[in-house]
Design a protein around this nucleic acid. Structure first.
Length: 1009
RNA sequence: GCUGAAGUGGUGGAAUUGGUAGACACGUUGGACUUAAAAUCCAAUGGCCAUUAUGGCCGUGCGGGUUCAAGUCCCGCCUUCAGUACCA
């Protein structure tokens, strides 16, 4: 019998589906284990070989855990809302739901043929109303909650209302908007209902606010920062402007500290935790209030102003020699003196013109203006000049800093530039060249009551003194901003929100889901409203509690619905919990389900979600925990980031190509005289007839006649840069990097008559072998280096694909794909097959050759060595090394001519997580009637590995020279004596007496001297 | 700049607490089988030198150090990748 992988794989995939082999039960006698993948966005391009890497790893782990006796939850679904389907709808008019459905069908087919052990009965799709019903439900829960800093958790909004009714808001310690007016209980009770709603909105965990957003007029939507490249939209390159819009926001900043602390309790990679820590950006310091000195020239005395600053270095307060405000700071207009007004206004105008991006990229240029005003130092009472400068960001801290030039390089540079004094407050530190920012090795000087103190002590003391005079306190700042939660898009979750007098009202949860309406066009409306503005049936009837036609809006019982939709991360922020009970229509999940599954034990996915999905979902989980819906405030115990599989692009060089640059001027003389060959080709058009009479002929070789003509009629150009490097489709290149020239020429019309060049720029003749240049790049369609798993499965089988993806290298690492290498694992599978089936000559069917023979000592040693290593490897997620281990085991057992069922049967269980189809097939051939999926993992027995001797490496001065086999129970002294007596030792020593002999029993012998 | 990860043959990568560097594969070369190719099998394969029983020298990004012994530990650099960026 031959190893017919296509037939075997189809057979077992059908068997698993028919028998629901991997269906997880919500209650079981077995211990539970939850293995989760980041669910994919089903794009139109389908999967390439890079996509399944993480899924294969998690599948191996899930299958391993089943062998280890666990009830494993290993679900899969689709993050199926998103922009590409919407863009496609805009272009073609096809409803995104149809596109999405088609793409999902492709994904499912591709996933199925790789043989994953997903429990498909639990599939979720974020765009399915049955699913997003619960996304809307969570949104409402957030709306109905506020964050109490006293209890450090989210509480019901009704609790807050009770507090307001009883005592106003002065004693409420809540996460809320920056500028909330103070009111008493009487005030509150006297407020109109609208006023009360407005106030509450400032406290809710999801709230409406005027937010400055990146607005792209051409696309008619708000873009996230990472959708903007070089100041224009990533898609289409349209200009992006800053615009204020009323948007839903999530008060994630309330959870900043808990999100930070929680990182210490979870087993995620350090780099990922570090990313999140940086993103949260906690800074501990103090806020200090500086009083602005009244200025005699300012006639209107509007009372006193104070500038509040945040600093992480209160210990340097005596080093302040100026203050700097962001140009946008509110106080600027109020404190600027008449003499300085012109200069300040000019500066503000100049800064306003510079885009955010210019300001960021142009860090080097120092600019600013003096306001003419002075503030009073809180301790010395000396006047401090107040400047404005765009190195101070309005959006961080208070938008103002106390500038300590001796301790901060930016302040230092600013002071140098504007000739502001730089007082030195560090003992024995030279600051004539640059600022001294090292706070750990500092003794403070010239600083009144903190002289001689170190950073820690001085900081404490300064904060204490500031508190005494009421001009400051210890404060912690976070970089984490609230997350904008509105998108001006069609293909997303609609909000369960309608508006009464402009104030948002939640739709009762019992009427969810509010389904996405149909629209004619998926673009924003002509008046600039989001795509849902095109919907004609998009109003909420509060009597029937249904969505009705817009023309019924009377703002009495029928109201307009929210036109924005939710962002991509909404649907992915609780999907892991929904998998526990995905078909529940009564609740997001049942209590029984969450109590049983608890939390994700292992989560595998890409690191690109470090500060997006992985942070937002932690936030929602903490919220769900506060509300008592879940029992862990971190949802994933352990997280592994799989690395990316890169493509190995193939490059060919053709004569001609695309002109990428034309240069003029006689500078060409100093450039290459010859034609230089690299990624691009430089052709100097200046040449000396005498020196190179062939040059003109050569030019014809490299350039098209049109280009040549254009240049001849355009004498101002003196050299030309061609990009003659083109990507060849990797499928046209064989394992020895040789191009199928014929195929390549037929691949594209324009390559039909193309002339190719070799590495020296020489023209390749028809019968020459063309070797392509290979380089590793990200796998992408445009680089023609995409490898489709369908092809691999067809040619080598899913088991080969699975093994090879793991064999490529460590899971977390970035590594290139090279299809040629797959023959290694493929022949391994064939060798494995041959251990079980004899191959008979002449195409006859082989017969099963496994017998009940007693295993030999060697057989047992190989098996148990393999059990031990594979078990360790899986536990350490070192899947690449276990593939090697399998290869070694099969090679050894083949050499041993092992036919013993006692060896070959457990071997299948070891291999089954990696190559489940072949394992099932051979398992069945051995007479098993049940799937191998839950067969118990073989027990490792140390006794089979016990050796009586050890081949000792004998080294001299640390260098291994030869080996000696010695009994393991030999004593140190006996080993030393035996080794020293050995002839080869004497040869090595050549008469010298060893100074020292190191004997590590069971390890090594090292002779020094 | 800061943070994190990583530098090992032609390539992907192995190497427990420091203890035989290069496992396992790919590729390459030679051979067997074949009319031929594919497939399969066998052998060699870090570099340099020597020898034809055997051997020697150098080798894990660079420079130091600790140690009987360093890819592994310490100090100082260099390079690459990723994230982040005037965060006070």
């Amino acid at each position: 019998m031959k190893y017919n992988f296509n037939q075997i794989e189809a057979k077992w995939q059908k068997y698993w589906a028919d028998n629901q082999t991997f269906k997880a039960e919500n209650n079981s006698e077995k211990p539970k284990y939850y293995v989760l993948d980041m669910f994919p966005y089903p794009s139109g391009a389908g999967l390439h070989v890079g996509h399944p890497l993480g899924y294969i790893a998690s599948d191996i782990y899930a299958r391993y855990k089943r062998h280890k006796g666990f009830n494993v939850l290993h679900p899969q679904g689709y993050d199926s809302f998103g922009l590409p389907a919407e863009q496609y709808a805009i272009q073609t008019g096809q409803h995104p739901a149809i596109t999405t459905k088609e793409n999902i069908a492709t994904y499912r087919r591709q996933l199925d043929q790789i043989g994953f052990s997903f429990d498909w009965s639990r599939e979720v799709r974020t765009s399915d109303p049955k699913y997003y019903k619960w996304t809307q439900w969570i949104f409402i829960q957030l709306f109905e909650s506020w964050f109490n800093y006293d209890t450090n958790k989210a509480e019901d909004i009704t609790e807050l209302i009770k507090l307001f009714e009883a005592e106003g808001n002065t004693n409420v310690n809540a996460a809320c908007d920056d500028e909330v007016e103070n009111f008493t209980a009487e005030d509150w009770n006297a407020f109109s209902s609208e006023k009360q709603q407005e106030v509450l909105l400032q406290y809710r965990l999801t709230y409406l606010a005027e937010t400055e957003v990146n607005w792209c007029p051409a696309l008619g939507t708000v873009l996230a920062n990472d959708e903007i490249v070089n100041g224009v939209s990533e898609r289409g390159g349209h200009p992006v402007i800053r615009k204020k819009m009323t948007q839903w926001s999530m008060r994630i900043s309330a959870y900043a500290e808990r999100l930070l602390q929680g990182l210490d309790t979870i087993d995620w990679t350090d780099s990922l935790k570090e990313s999140q820590r940086n993103w949260i950006g906690k800074s501990v310091g103090a806020s200090v209030a500086f009083n602005v000195l009244p200025n005699v020239t300012l006639s209107a005395v509007e009372g006193s102003h104070t500038i509040e600053v945040f600093t992480t270095r209160p210990d340097t307060i005596f080093g302040v020699s100026f203050m700097t405000l962001a140009p946008e700071h509110d106080l600027v207009s109020k404190i600027t003196t008449p003499e300085q007004k012109a200069e300040v206004d000019a500066y503000i105008e100049a800064t306003a013109k510079r885009s955010e991006r210019d300001r960021m990229s142009d860090v080097k240029t120092i600019s600013g203006a003096f306001t003419g005003a002075y503030a009073e130092h809180p301790f010395t009472k000396e006047p401090i000049p107040i400047w404005i400068g765009d190195y101070v960001l309005a959006s961080y801290g208070t938008g103002a800093v106390m500038s300590v030039p001796c301790g901060d390089q930016r302040d230092y540079d600013f002071a140098k530039h504007f000739d502001i004094p730089i007082p030195n407050i560090f003992e024995g530190i030279d600051i004539s060249e640059e600022a001294f920012a090292d706070k750990d090795n500092t003794i403070i000087a010239n600083s009144d009551f903190i002289n001689g103190m170190n950073y820690k002590k001085a900081t404490k003391r300064v904060i204490y003194e500031l508190e005494q005079i009421g001009q400051g306190e210890g404060k912690t700042n976070y970089r984490l901003r609230d997350a904008v939660f509105s998108r001006q898009r069609y293909w997303g979750e609609p909000f369960p929100v309608y508006y009464v007098n402009g104030l948002p009202q939640m739709i009762d949860t019992e009427h969810l889901p509010v389904e996405l309406p149909e629209v004619e066009k998926y673009l924003p409306t002509e008046t600039g409203e989001p795509p849902l503005g095109n919907a004609t049936v998009w109003a909420w009837d509060t009597e029937s509690n249904t969505v009705v036609e817009n023309d019924k809006i009377d703002n009495n019982t029928v109201f307009p619905l929210e036109l924005n939709t939710m962002p991509g991360w909404a649907g992915s922020s609780q999907y892991f919990n929904r998998y526990m009970d995905p078909n529940n229509d009564e609740a997001i999940f049942s209590k029984e389900a969450i109590d049983y599954w608890q939390q994700v034990d292992l989560y595998i996915g890409g690191s690109e979600h470090a500060t997006g999905h992985l942070l937002y979902s932690r936030f929602w989980q903490k919220f769900m925990f506060d509300k008592g819906y879940v029992n862990h405030d971190e949802y994933a115990k352990k997280l592994i980031n799989q690395g990316m599989i890169l493509g190995t692009s193939a490059f060919v060089y053709r004569a001609g190509g695309n002109i990428i640059e034309l240069k003029k001027g006689n500078k060409a003389r100093s450039f290459v005289k010859e034609i230089k060959f690299d990624k691009s080709i430089f052709i100097p058009l200046y040449y000396n007839e005498e020196e190179d009479s062939n040059f003109k002929d050569n030019l014809k070789k490299y350039m098209s006649s049109e280009d040549l003509e254009m240049l001849n009629s355009n004498p101002k150009y003196s050299w030309i840069v061609y990009n003659n490097e083109i990507h060849a489709d990797v499928s046209l290149v064989n394992s020895s990097d040789e191009l199928d020239v014929e195929g390549f020429k037929n691949w594209r019309e324009e390559y039909k008559d193309a002339v190719f060049l070799d590495e020296n720029g020489e023209v390749i003749k028809d019968n020459d072998v063309y070797k392509v240049r290979r380089d590793v790049e990200k796998m992408s369609k445009s680089k023609y280096n995409v490898v489709n798993p369908d092809d691999i499965v067809r040619d080598y089988g899913a088991d080969s694909l699975r093994l090879y993806e793991m064999f490529l290298g460590p899971l977390e690492q970035y590594k290139p794909w090279n299809t040629a290498g797959i023959t290694g694992v493929y022949s391994f599978l064939k060798k494995l097959w041959k251990l079980y089936y004899s191959s008979l000559e002449g195409g006859q069917e082989g017969v099963l050759k496994v017998t009940d023979a007693e295993p030999t000592k060697d057989n047992l040693k190989t098996l148990h060595k393999t059990i031990k290593k594979v078990e360790e490897d899986i536990e350490n997620f070192s899947f690449n090394t276990s593939v090697s281990t399998f290869m070694i085991a099969v090679n050894e057992l083949t050499a041993q001519k092992c036919r013993s069922k006692a060896i070959l049967e457990p071997l299948l269980i070891l291999i089954s997580p990696y190559a489940p189809h072949i394992a099932e097939e051979l398992w069945e051939a051995l007479g098993n009637t049940e799937s191998i999926a839950t067969a118990p993992f073989p027990e490792f027995d140390e006794s089979h590995l016990v050796e009586s001797t050890k081949v000792y490496p004998i080294s001299f001065n640390g260098k291994m020279r030869f080996t000696m086999e010695l009994p393991l129970d030999m004593s140190k002294d006996d080993i030393e004596a035996t080794v020293l007596e050995f002839d080869k030792t004497k040869d090595q020593l050549q008469g010298r007496t060893p100074k020292k002999v190191i004997v590590v029993p069971g390890k090594i012998v090292n002779i020094v001297g």
